[in-house]
Computed example of a mutant assay.
Amino acid sequence: MPAALPYWRLSSFYFFYFCLLGGTAPFLALYFSHLGFSSARIGELVAIPMLMRCVAPNLWGWLGDRSGKRLQIVRFGALCTAVCFAGIFLGHSYTWLALVMAGHAFFWHAVLPQFEVITLAHLGERTASYSRIRLWGSIGFICTVVGLGWLFDKVSLDAYPWALLVIMLGIIGASWWVPNAQPTWHHEHATAGGFLAQLRQPGVVAFYLCVCLMQLSHGPYYTFITIHLEKLGYSRGLIGGLWALGVVAEVVLFLVMPRLLARFSLRQVLAASFLLAALRWLLLGNLAQHLGVLLFAQLLHAATFGSFHAAAIHFVQRTFQARQQGQGQALYAALAGTGGALGALYSGYSWASLGPAWTFAIASLAALAAAAIIATRLKEERT
């Protein structure tokens, strides 16, 4: 008889973890702008945590596989995330803030991959329950973007670091509430060809290039959309609601994704995601002053993140053998981080010199290039 599932303990961790993401994605650049940094410096500071995503998961993942002490890594990473971030209260120089961003992100990105393994170990054969647990992450994100948007309409952004630190304390508490679990490893026969051989399959390198391009195209959105909308006259409360709308659309898409993948091939889903991303960036860069257009653009988050991410995970699972799944997922995370960092950097440099319209136009071109690569280089296969 399987052990009772610690549903609320696991869910609470996802809730607080994605609360932190909801606090950083829409408001971090706004806080740096509040401190008086230029768009170029803001782009660099936002890029640093994304660069840590290229390094930290692989290093901490290796340590977790090697030691088996995943829960200890989660707790240590959660604690060090808060300690490093608390350095933000000691100074606001560019160099110091860059160190704070690098330090807290290095430990923050250690946490989730290890916790995913713990969650799946608790679930065992009950993998269908995973979506009900992970859903609380989306709820946490929505609560934070709405709540902080409302808060910063009432009080100064000087309160921003304190709000994030409270969330980090929630992550620490949730990590100590979760019971440990170890995955059950089954012996597998070695298969012909290693990771590099599988990487050389037709279309695989093209797919990973498109992962990088997709995240690069998100650079202006994740770095400057809150600042952009505020300058267009939208309140911070409404901006938080618009961020939440995108996540709601993403959640709905995840619920119908199995039916989409049953009807359309991965190539079709990925190509459609890139084309809709290109449209979304053009709308945000040129017509965001019209609320109706802005609402439609936010609903397109269902494609630019939801369908793209779900299809990409399916592609990695389909492409790599069991022993190489971890490396395939790690490469996906690393290239997503690389693309995100490059997107934050280019948008930081182009925002002041070229303006929002051209910055988002470059993002649209990156998404169009990815659509063309997927359409011509990926094999037509259904899942």
Rank of each mutant, 00 (worst) to 15 (best):
Q327C: 03
D65G: 08
A102G: 12
T319Y: 03
A98P: 08
R75H: 03
G194R: 07
A334V: 00
V146N: 03
M214R: 08
A344V: 03
L165G: 05
I171R: 11
S12G: 15
Y130I: 02
H109K: 06
V117F: 08
L135V: 14
F305L: 01
T304G: 07
Q317L: 07
I73Y: 06
G306W: 05
G173M: 09
F315N: 04
A363S: 15
H218I: 08
E380S: 12
E125R: 13
I48W: 12
W150M: 10
Q324P: 08
L10E: 02
H218W: 06
F360C: 00
H290I: 02
R382S: 08
P6M: 14
S67R: 09
L345Y: 06
L378A: 01
L213A: 11
G61D: 04
S307P: 14
F106S: 12
S11Y: 08
A375L: 14
G339N: 11
F274E: 01
D153C: 02
G170N: 06
L335I: 10
T359F: 13
V316G: 08
L294Q: 00
I133Q: 05
F27I: 00
G241W: 01
F27W: 12
F254N: 06
A190T: 13
W96Y: 04
W351F: 10
L216H: 00
Q198L: 02
C143W: 06
G337T: 11
T119S: 10
Q268N: 14
L300D: 03
L335T: 05
I133E: 03
M50A: 10
Q201K: 13
Q182E: 15
L354T: 01
T383V: 14
G240K: 11
A121R: 07
H309G: 05
L71P: 10
Q182M: 13
A262R: 15
